[in-house]
Design a protein around this nucleic acid. Structure first.
Length: 811
RNA sequence: GCCCGGGUGGCGAAAUCGGCAGACGCAACGGACUUAAAAUCCGUUAUCCGGCAACGGGUGUGCGGGUUCAAUUCCCGCCCCGGGCACCA
């Protein structure tokens, strides 16, 4: 055949059209005898356009999906839209476009891009989280959790901007101020809000990290462990004169004789019983804490004038309020042991509170208070501690906790850093929380048969008020389902992390209108075999998803304990060395690259520029290099298909290379996922094929072209399919069996062995592959250069590694 | 401060189990083709020293030590860059 020029648009648009007419191409089989494989990429937020960061994520998943098809698996590869969220509301305020309309048109546009890139999604299973057929199940789950006590309501602080007169999401708070009013500090207001009891699963979420070891990245597991933050210690009551007991949590009950004051969080219940001045000071601390970013903050506090009694020593100590004591952790109150805790030390030094050391190192003296520069947090021997003096810290911890429990003023206790999940959002564009507030009956769940509670579509979003839904009387005013009297609908909507906590289950049964999904389908497809996404979701999304799975298991919907067997976190994409961002204006749009260089080129480059777990740099010249490579492949194949061929003198050589490359790429898929080296290997093969083009027999040439087509199939689907057709074949190339490599054919017959003398390379020998140690040694010692170098010296040792190297040690 | 990554040519990177450092690509340079250019094809390209040259010798994977016949790879101590967490009692 005559050589053809590589015109990516011609090839890609042709197949794009043909594939559009084949809806079953990427569908998973319903009753398959093949083993299943569920590969999933994180669903995108429909912001309006796919960028190359998305393309990288999907190119990894798509290569894997296609490879697994070729390996004979029944592959489930779905995609959907994380379609609720704040940007749609902002767009509504700015362009007066309804959020749903804006969102759906974005989805339409992005889906076209997805198709242009030929990602192999089963669009029949598409999930769009902002549509009632999806979010009704959010509501259904919420009601189940309400029944089980896993959903509950309590007061919590929200960010409030006085100028906007509205609640701000955390991401709308910039440097402690409102994003639209940069000089207006955000205030903290207490509102009744809905929470999911993730803490009920804290222990199991921590325990089951063990199940993920080896298949999830270690750093993700570490981050989750830290996030859950289990800490074991004790709770102890201190009696406060004129108030009652206040409970503290401590991991160091062994230091309790050194407690020289008690410090309360500014939000602690006791503070509300204090005078106006103290309450105002505490409020200032709370607002200041919300405004400060991360970093070192000066410790502040004030004396309440109250005294607390240490239940162990009987000593009376002052009660303070301190800005560094967190209400959301432990009991919101601590005993300060300045001698043995750095934070307490800094606080007490600043305010002149007594410092009393009670621990000495096992082999040292108790610290001298006047010389102390910092607290000593180490375990040691307990001193000045009544009957516990002389014990090790470990022993004292156990005995003191037991004593407290026996006396009824304390107990051993475990505290978690992870908090219950606040799911209330004072927003429009989210799942309505399905409850009704009745004056007579209180909080009444919406009955299941009245789901979904549909989000009203005709609504003015003003950006003011407690919540946009508050302004919609048709939505708010309802009859109480229990007593029939007038009642108000809940106007908070759910956090969008709810949507993404279970969407991958819905893919298995996306059109079910009677249940979130059918259990048998979950049993077949779950767990997800491979989940691929950005590391930025290592904590929240993936912990919530794990929580949701355990919750669904406990209400009998599923049997698996974990949703995801293997997790892969890919690196970021930089544009010319810089992080892509809208503000810098350097976001590389995916569809533009597809038009200028082709989808195949973009996909291949996304995998070639760096190993997938690392950050990669997107450069125009690099993209062009890949485009050149694909052109080389295409021209080579088209001009050689069906040609008579040469004398075959290079057949052995090219077939050896072919099998070496095949082995390399197969291993890259099965073990390492370093697709950059897979692609480099294909380039090596093509380079060699160019050099030997005239010396290949027709049979070797056709085999080279065919296998190269298979190798390209997971990475460059358009070109691979086109070459498949050029070779006169029919059917989808990615449904053909992946070729097996032949170890025999991949083996080199001759190898070059570097010969070292005292570790420096002095000569090279070409020997038969597999030559043993003795043979190598003999060949090396016969070498002229080697002989010259070792002449007159004593050979101490000869290290021979067959097929690798030989080292002669002389003196 | 704590916990992870990472540091290799002009650049992105490779070296999979301790065995030839720099595969592959980019950029640059040279050659072929062309009236010319683009495209394409073929080469050269870590660095220093000696040589007209073939070639020979030295140095080199952030820095300093160590183990080893042999270290980008293992161990100890530092430096720098990126990310996460950040008063969690």
């Amino acid at each position: 055949m005559p050589e053809k020029t590589y015109d990516h648009n011609e090839i890609e648009l042709k197949w794009h059209e043909r594939w559009a007419a084949e809806p079953a191409l990427y569908q998973a089989e319903e009753n398959s005898s093949k083993p299943k494989y569920y590969v999933l990429e994180m669903l995108p937020y429909p912001s309006g356009a796919l960028h190359i960061g998305h393309i990288r994520n999907y190119s990894i998943g798509d290569a894997l999906a296609r490879y697994m098809w070729m390996r004979g698996y029944n592959v489930l590869h779905p995609m959907g839209w994380d379609a609720f969220g704040l940007p749609a509301e902002n767009a509504a305020i700015q362009n007066k476009r309804p959020p749903r309309e804006w969102t759906l048109s974005n989805i339409e546009k992005m889906k076209r891009t997805h198709r242009r890139f030929a990602f192999s999604y089963d669009w029949d299973r598409e999930v769009t989280t902002c549509e009632p057929d999806y979010y009704r199940w959010n509501q259904w789950f919420f009601l189940r959790m309400l029944e089980k006590g896993l959903a509950y309501r309590k007061q919590a602080l929200v960010n409030w901007c006085n100028l906007c007169a509205t609640v701000l999401a955390n991401e709308q708070v910039v440097d402690g101020c409102c994003w639209r009013h940069e000089s207006t500090p955000v205030e903290q207001r207490a509102l009744d809000q809905w929470f999911l009891r993730t803490t009920a699963y804290a222990d199991e979420l921590l325990q089951d990290i063990g199940l993920l070891e080896g298949t999830w990245p270690d750093r993700v597991l570490t981050m989750q462990r830290n996030w859950i933050g289990k800490s074991e210690g004790a709770e102890v009551d201190f009696q406060i004169e004129g108030y009652g007991p206040v409970r503290v949590f401590t991991t160091r009950i062994d230091t309790i004789y050194g407690a020289t004051c008690m410090i309360l969080a500014p939000g602690h219940d006791l503070v509300s019983t204090l005078g106006d001045e103290a309450k105002a000071a505490a409020k200032r601390m709370i607002d200041a804490a919300a405004q400060q970013g991360p970093g070192d903050v000066e410790k502040e506090g004030f004396d309440t004038g109250l005294k607390a009694v240490n239940p162990f020593s009987g000593e009376r100590v002052p009660v303070w309020v301190g800005n560094f004591v967190l209400m959301g952790y432990g009991t919101g109150a601590i005993m300060a042991v300045p001698a043995h805790d750095q934070r307490d030390f800094e606080f007490c030094r600043k305010y002149g509170i007594r410092i009393l050391p009670v621990i000495r190192p096992a082999d040292g003296e108790i610290p001298n208070v006047d010389a102390m520069q910092e607290a000593s947090g180490e375990y040691g021997i307990v001193e000045n501690s009544g009957p516990y003096s002389g014990m090790t810290s470990e022993k004292a911890r156990a005995e003191m906790a037991a004593f407290a429990e026996q006396q009824g003023f304390g107990k051993t206790a475990v505290t978690f850093r992870i908090k219950d999940w606040g799911v209330s959002r004072q927003r429009y564009w989210g799942t309505p929380i399905p409850v009704i507030h009745c004056e007579k009956c209180g909080v009444v769940p919406v009955p299941d048969d009245q789901l979904p509670v549909v989000l009203p579509r005709q609504i003015q979003i003003t950006g003011k008020g407690r919540s946009p839904l508050d302004e919609v009387p048709e939505f708010v005013n309802v009859d109480c389902p229990r007593c029939g009297g007038p009642a108000r609908r809940e106007t908070d909507t759910m956090d969008t992390f709810v949507d993404s906590s279970w969407y991958f289950y819905r893919y298995c049964d996306a059109k079910n209108s009677n249940a979130p999904f059918d259990k048998a389908k979950i049993d077949y497809w779950f767990p997800i075999d491979q989940y691929i996404g950005g590391v930025e979701h290592a904590i929240l999304h993936l912990i919530y998803s794990r929580f949701w799975t355990k919750m669904m298991r406990d209400i009998g919907l599923i049997t698996n304990a974990e949703p995801v067997r293997k997790l892969f976190t890919q690196g970021m994409v930089l544009a010319n060395g810089m992080k892509m961002s809208k503000s810098k204006g350097n976001v590389v749009d995916a569809i533009g690259v597809a038009e200028s260089h082709g989808a195949d080129t973009a996909r291949l480059f996304a995998l070639f520029a760096a190993p997938p777990e690392r950050d990669m740099d997107w450069t125009e010249t690099g993209v062009e290099g890949i485009h050149r490579f694909l052109g080389r492949v295409y021209r080579f194949a088209t001009r050689n298909i069906g040609m008579p061929g040469g004398d075959g003198s290079a057949d052995t050589k090219i077939l050896r290379k072919l099998h070496q490359v095949l082995r390399r790429i197969t291993q890259d898929f099965d073990q390492r996922w370093h697709f950059n080296t897979s692609i480099a290997a294909m380039m090596e093969l093509v380079n060699e094929a160019y050099l030997e083009e005239q010396n290949l027999s027709a049979a070797a040439m056709q085999q080279t072209i065919e296998i190269l087509t298979f190798l390209l199939a997971p990475f460059a689907p358009y070109l691979a399919q086109e070459l498949w057709e050029e070779q006169g074949k029919t059917g989808a190339v990615f449904k053909q069996p992946w070729p097996a490599f032949n170890e025999e054919m991949a083996r080199e017959t001759e190898v070059e062995i570097p010969v070292q003398v005292n570790g420096k390379i002095r000569s090279r020998l070409t020997v038969a592959a597999g030559l043993d140690k003795a043979g190598l040694e003999q060949a090396a010692l016969a070498d002229e250069k080697v002989q010259a170098l070792i002449a007159g010296k004593t050979v101490v040792k000869v290290i021979a590694v067959p097929d690798k190297l030989l080292n002669i040690v002389v003196k």
